[in-house]
Design a protein around this nucleic acid. Structure first.
Length: 205
DNA sequence: AGGAAGATCCGCT
DNA sequence: GCGGATCTTCCTG
């Protein structure tokens, strides 16, 4: 498979934790009229369905907002938070199983000028996609991309070598203190030492 | 109909 | 470390 081809549907058809592991190192590509932007995923979080109190699908709540989580795998679930930010998830597992992987950070690869412009040229390049909302901003992802099919179209994930195991780390997920015991489950995965990883220093090495 | 909280980010102290 | 920005969504009454 060419590195520029979208990963196939079968890649996404597994539970969110396994998909999260597989996503580390993969390349998210977005072609728009303004140009192409691409970045390598270095931080993700698994949200594991109705029994996961931290997930938007907790308790089996199915609403217009999280509807995409119930759909087939390989689509993007994009939601709006805090009155100003967009965040993007990759839908995992079979239709009817509402699991997803939040994309928290990535290292810029292509389209640096475009991403700087979208971000307002703030900070070092390595931090252009540091944090879930910044990632969406730099890649031009927003409301229009909710439900987008990542296996066909201008927004897709391309294959890339898996990062070495000795750089892979796990931690509790960030920003889910409301979720009780589930808040402490180690379902955040990241690459140690990447300057693009978000969170406090203790959660980046 | 109303209100509370949110899978965040940034700038200031 | 803290709080403000800003608005959608969902639950409650």
């Amino acid at each position: 498979m060419d590195a520029r081809d979208p990963l196939p549907r079968a890649f996404y058809r597994r539970d969110a934790l396994r998909l999260a592991r597989a996503l580390l190192g993969k390349v998210l590509v977005h072609r728009t009229p303004d140009g192409l932007a691409a970045a390598r995923l270095v931080e993700v979080e698994a949200y594991r369905g109705p029994r996961d109190r931290a997930a938007h699908s907790a308790g089996g709540r199915r609403t217009p907002r999280n509807e995409v989580m119930w759909g087939p795998p390989g689509h993007l679930y994009v939601y709006f938070v805090y009155g100003m930010h967009w965040c993007a998830n990759v839908v995992a597992a079979d239709a009817g199983v509402p699991e997803a992987v939040l994309l928290r950070a990535a290292e810029p690869l292509e389209g640096l000028d475009l991403m700087r412009a979208r971000r307002g040229r703030r900070g070092p390049d390595a931090e252009l996609l540091r944090g879930p909302a910044n990632l969406c901003r730099a890649l031009g992802i927003g409301r229009a991309h909710n439900g987008a099919d990542l296996t066909a179209g201008s927004l897709f994930l391309a294959d890339a070598p898996a990062p070495p195991r000795h750089r892979q780390r796990r931690s509790a997920r960030i920003g889910v203190d409301y979720a009780g015991a589930d808040a402490r489950r180690p379902w955040r995965l990241y690459l140690a030492g990447s300057p693009a990883v978000s969170g406090p220093p203790a959660l980046r090495g």
